[in-house]
């Protein structure tokens, strides 16, 4: 089993103190057998990318409830690309209006989980897209 196929960084980016949702998602993923790294609130895009690099994460889950997703998310994705980390798969959760989803997907986000997304969908997504184990 390749241990690296189980590491997920869940991050809050920008001025957004609402962390109830991300903690619920973190718990569900922990209980589904993933290693979840939660670096806390109010991180800059640069700080998030630094965490992803240091932790050798396979996924980055960004939670945003501040409305700044169209500014912050593309910035994170640009930084990932600049630092040679474009293999990291990015998903976004939070209060994302339907009409903003295409823009996020277009900039490289793999999946958006808006309000009301069942936990089983989120866990199922991470299970389903798990890279094929090496060896």
């Amino acid at each position: 089993m390749n241990a690296s196929s189980k590491r997920i960084v869940l991050a809050k980016v920008g001025l957004d103190g609402h962390d109830r949702g991300i903690k619920v998602v973190a718990r569900a993923l922990r209980d589904a057998g993933f290693e979840v790294i939660y670096p806390g609130l109010w991180l800059s895009p640069e700080a998030v990318v630094r965490v992803v690099a240091e932790e050798d994460a396979d996924w980055l889950g960004i939670s945003i409830l501040s409305g700044a997703h169209l500014i912050l998310v593309p910035k994170v994705l640009d930084l990932l690309r600049q630092q040679g980390l474009s293999h990291v798969r990015v998903v976004v959760g939070g209060t994302i209006p339907e009409e903003d989803v295409p823009a996020l997907l277009a900039c490289g986000v793999e999946k958006v989980f808006g309000p009301g997304s069942p936990l089983s969908d989120i866990v199922g997504y991470f299970r389903g897209s798990q890279p094929v184990p090496q060896t």
Partner: peptide, 15 residues
């Protein structure tokens, strides 16, 4: 700690 039940973990020290 890694969960003895699921094998998962919540790694939150770096906060």
């Amino acid at each position: 700690p890694r969960s003895p039940v699921s094998g998962g973990a919540l790694l939150g020290d770096r906060i």
